[in-house]
Design a protein around this nucleic acid. Structure first.
Lengths: 247, 247
DNA sequence: AAAGCTAATTGATTTAGATCAAACAGGGAT
DNA sequence: ATCCCTGTTTGATCTAAATCAATTAGCTTT
């Protein structure tokens, strides 16, 4: 059915095994298990649940969201294959976000206590986990989602471009993006009104930047799209060693 | 002059040594050194510098800021004693933010490579570092600085209340806050115009919530101030084990 | 295929906070 | 003390995007 091993996973150069040698990947595989198939709307974990596992997306897309004290919903992120979630719950020992499947999703699951003790014995794994935490932290510091001073156009073009880049880094070769989330989800995520998303998508289409048919977006003029986004620095995920080497 | 030891530091229950036993603190002390005194405007590290050390504030206040590709400045955070910075540079191996002293500042400095190898031998230190990274990540996920949908009033009251709480957690007993940063810094940090900060502070004073004389704020009606903030969940730093124990 | 429901679009109006434009104040340097 | 510079305040105006208000299109279910 599903291959439980990291060694054969297409995402192993993006995910937790990056930088580990064969023997260490084997040790990691011992604590990783593959989840049952999740379907649209299935919840993987809930805000407030006791923290136990961290997860990696194997296939499909998930969304993470939370409700604050005032009952307001915040859609924080959409996760693609090779991306981890749950790490922000280590400290509080409870999940801060509910994560649910947006389409058909398969996950890898690791007990964090086991992962942590494995880190003590596998320095390259400890290194990679610190690196991933640091990268997430850096991203959320530099792109605080709602980069204030960004216009609605910059936010939405940035969102589309970021999604395209991340998909490309995962082998997606076409200019077609299927958006599995609703306009309302996109709006909430970007801190905009759904009406604004509608109007902007329409305008992008009129300007021949994209073509949109329901939830299927085709990037028609990528350069024009890139010209709209405010800041390109972080859209493609940085390869961890590139900068070190050039230093 | 300055005590280099963590054992005797007033911040050791907030900072990196939390959860370590006496012997392990000793091992940590071996890789920690205390910086020279920094004065207003002195830079501790610069955006783009090669990553080497992580820092903890021992006394005083610092600000972290960066310029994006477009040359726009973003003031990301203000650090109080016991707070670490630099962890978001582990991945890229270059600092993403410039950090400078806002007043008279003393720092603790650790080479990250040494810290990382110490983590392999001191499980409680590894645990604490994962926990601190996770907490920072959680905070920036839940409070993305510019929590969109927050009004200017909510942002500024939240900022003042957050600062008061953090100072209190560090033993500050008075209702007087000295703001070592400019109005422009506060405005930039909150994604507002300096004019808006001025007008709001004036209004807060007229409503008898605060008293303000230049950069000295006195909280007159704390309850009223708290009533203004949008969401209280994260203002006081969570004690890492409280939730675990109650779970 | 029709009904029903939710998601999405489109249009009119409103508003919070930005921007523009001056005046004013504080705190060093001379 | 006086000057100067920068930080701050105050006022008038403008605008991007929210909100309010319908309408329309896509899926499900029957």
């Amino acid at each position: 059915m599903y291959d439980h091993s990291c060694s054969n996973c297409a995402m192993n150069e993006i995910c937790l095994p990056l930088g580990l040698d064969k023997a260490d990947i084997c040790r990691l595989e011992e604590i990783v298990s593959t989840s049952a198939v999740k379907h649209t709307g299935d919840k993987i974990l809930r805000q407030g649940d006791v923290f136990q596992n961290v997860y990696a997306v194997k296939s499909g897309m998930t969304k993470s969201y939370r409700f604050d004290d005032a009952g307001t919903e915040y859609i924080h992120s959409f996760h693609l294959p090779g991306e981890l979630f749950g790490l922000d719950a280590i400290h509080a020992q409870r999940y801060g976000f509910t994560v649910e499947a947006l389409d058909t999703v398969v996950l890898c699951e690791m007990n964090f206590e086991e992962l942590q003790s494995l880190c003590s014995h596998v320095p390259s794994l400890q290194r990679q986990l610190f690196s991933l935490l640091s990268r997430d932290l850096y991203k959320s510091h530099v792109n605080p989602i709602d980069h204030f001073d960004q216009t609605a156009e910059q936010k939405l073009s940035g969102f589309l471009h970021n999604l395209l880049s991340r998909l490309e880094a995962r082998g997606h070769a076409s200019m077609e993006l299927h958006l599995p989330m609703s306009r309302r989800d996109i709006a909430n995520h970007l801190g905009l009104a759904p009406e604004t998303i509608s109007r902007l998508l329409k305008r992008f289409q009129q300007q021949n930047v994209i073509d949109i048919k329901n939830r299927l977006v085709t990037i028609v003029d990528r350069a024009k799209l890139e010209g709209m986004v405010h800041c390109h620095a972080l859209e493609t995920s940085i390869s961890p060693n590139d900068i070190t080497r050039s230093a």
